[in-house]
Write a protein that binds this DNA or RNA. Structure first.
Lengths: 190, 190
DNA sequence: CTTCAATAGTGATATACATCACATAATCCC
DNA sequence: GGGATTATGTGATGTATATCACTATTGAAG
């Protein structure tokens, strides 16, 4: 499917735009191809775009002082990703975004998103709902962190996204769950 | 300060409405008084309102099967609170909301908020930004959970909201940090 | 096909934190 | 004001998970 059709169908789940409105909306996006392992946002960068995944899989992650990696999000097709803290507050990136597999994405600048939100009320509605869902998902994950041990979190993740098991290496799943790769390995071998 | 003035000033940080628009907006809110310890939302309830704190302090929290409590949020004046998962998805409450101190709040129904968002574009903008900020804060807290130990999280919380130390009992701070009250006690006595 | 790097498994040990048990202090309320 | 509830402190012990060290397997690139 073409980029335009994928994004159109994604929007249609939340709002309806006329063909002209959608064409105008779409004209602000730029399609980009990335190779497996390629970085899209690196810590310290100026961040002024967010990304809509057409194909492939991205990860957004944080590297701490001990060079340990924590994954904030895996981004699959039709998901959005960026360093939203840096993007909205116009600060330098503290998190990274890169490609777990080859990937096709659409990018839009922060300024263009804000412009579209103010020009087209339904677009503002769409982005409000996208963030609503992200916020709720983030709160659920927070609760899961407080309430569940590593095994339970692992089972929850696999129930929610079974595709991940074969798509991403186990040490990345560990980095998402917030456990060491050794502990994760022991979890499902017992 | 009166409820109307507090809410007006809060909105003015993000959007501008005419006096008539604000009066219309405000007419959808209902002011309510609660006593210390009183419940606003209880697990299992039908949830159809969210709450804006005028004075006092609320907490939203989850109780697990072992009757252990985890605090999602402390809500201080000008903060919003509800069980957003239940509210947006029209499901029964899985989290509770109650009062740490006597409190005055404004409540608005989900239906009215959605109506106002569609009638007044700036209101939709306001709620998009409110959720944006919540989302970013939630992601930061998630990272803090993965990256920091209890002591570091405690210090972060106290740096961000020093007022909490004297305002809420220590076992609630522990429930927010996701540690036992005993561990929290030992953290700052060494 | 071979080689080197990335990925994955496993034992031994260390550690942060939970849990249990109990003592003390503060606060509520009839 | 005094008795009950709620909040807090602290020792002893248990447990989930991290860390370190090493081996084995897989996969990609020349």
């Amino acid at each position: 499917m073409q980029a335009e059709a994928i994004l159109k169908q994604h929007l249609a789940k939340t709002i309806s735009l006329t063909d002209e409105q959608f064409a105008y909306f779409f004209s602000h996006f730029k399609q980009q191809s990335y190779k497996k392992g390629q970085a899209i946002i690196t810590e310290g960068d100026k961040v002024d775009h967010e990304y809509f995944v057409l194909s492939g899989c991205l990860k957004s992650f944080f590297i701490n002082d001990d060079v340990k990696m924590y994954i904030l999000q895996f981004a699959m097709p039709t998901w959005w990703a960026s360093d939203y803290n840096a993007l909205y507050n116009q600060t330098r990136a503290t998190i990274n975004l890169d490609c777990i597999t080859d990937a096709e994405v659409l990018s839009i600048s922060n300024a263009d998103r804000e412009k579209l939100c103010s020009e087209l009320h339904p677009v503002e509605h769409f982005f409000r709902w996208r963030t609503n869902k992200g916020f709720i998902a983030s709160q659920k994950r927070l609760l899961s962190f407080m309430n569940n041990d590593a095994k339970k979190r692992y089972e929850e993740l696999m129930a929610l996204y079974p595709a991940l098991y074969n798509m991403v290496p186990k040490h990345l799943i560990a980095a998402y769950l917030g456990v060491s790769r050794e502990t994760l390995s022991r979890l499902y071998h017992s």
